[in-house]
Amino acid sequence: MPDELTPQADSEQREAALPPADGGVPAIEPAPADGGVPAIEPILTVPHEPGAPKPDPILEVDGLSRSFGGLLAVDVDHLEVQRGATTALIGPNGAGKTTLFNLLSGFERADTGHWSFNGEAVTNPSADGLARKGMIRTFQLTKSLAKLTVIDNVLLGAPRQRGEKLWAAPFPNRWRSQEEANTERAEALLERFNLAHMRDELAGTLSGGQRKLLEVARALMADPVLIMLDEPMAGVNPALAQSLMHHITQLVYEGLSVVFIEHAMDVVTGISDWVVVLAQGQVIAEGPPWKVIHDDQVIDAYLGRRRAGAAR
């Protein structure tokens, strides 16, 4: 197995790969003039405090908690995520970011609490059910399907496939046209993520960074309304990271809502409209990136610890 596929190598690569922070100045690109997409401006009027209400939330969470063996991993009083914006979820290691993702996307059961997605209350959360409603997530450790080809990986993402029904599967005439349309779309996505040349290779042969891209492409294939990326930049080399950042900002212009978990502050300040800070399972701060990174509590909980770590 090539070294770069192992998780340790991933994180080392990440530390080395990312360009240095450029001073913490927010670099929000302006919304397009035609305003056809939900704009980012409304969110700028929201109070910068935990649990702040948003003008048009796609995700509303109330009293969500989950504990493991007595340790409260997630304990979110109230949280809203703005539609059509890029929201970063940050926090020190073990803050409960991934657990929060797992709860919201139905991969783990919450102990208490309820939430609504896209204006609809989520009763009985199931991972596949939420995905079919348009909440698509990716994973911190990429889950590329090693023994499927790259194109099959992406095609798998396509929603509402007629050929996935058992009774239609043996009769290609029932699904071939849809499959062809999907293939076209999948190829376009591969092109967009610079994977077209790997189309027919097995996904297991891709490098770690390419797998991250593949996972995002596959997620996009699923027609998401909200896309939740768990450390999309981890293990991606600098050039790819730049293009991935560009792709993510692009998604919002296409009408998607994006939530992502990230450790690298330059990425956070570079592409997010709004930052939610999690520490010990709780939301301790919210606001635009330039505001949040100067918040004392955040510096204590997160940056402080990070600096200490860096000094060591």
Binding site: S105, F107, A127, D128, A131, I136, R137, T138, F139, K143, S144, L145, A146, K147, L148, D152, L155, L156, Q161, R162, G163, E164, K165, L166, A168, A169, P170, P172, W175, E179, A219
Partner: peptide, 19 residues
């Protein structure tokens, strides 16, 4: 068929298929 593709994806990683 696409049905078989789903089966194989479950074999490879069922969480990916669910997601």
């Amino acid at each position: 068929s696409p049905w078989g593709r789903v089966l194989k994806s479950i074999r490879e990683d069922q969480d990916a298929a669910r997601s």
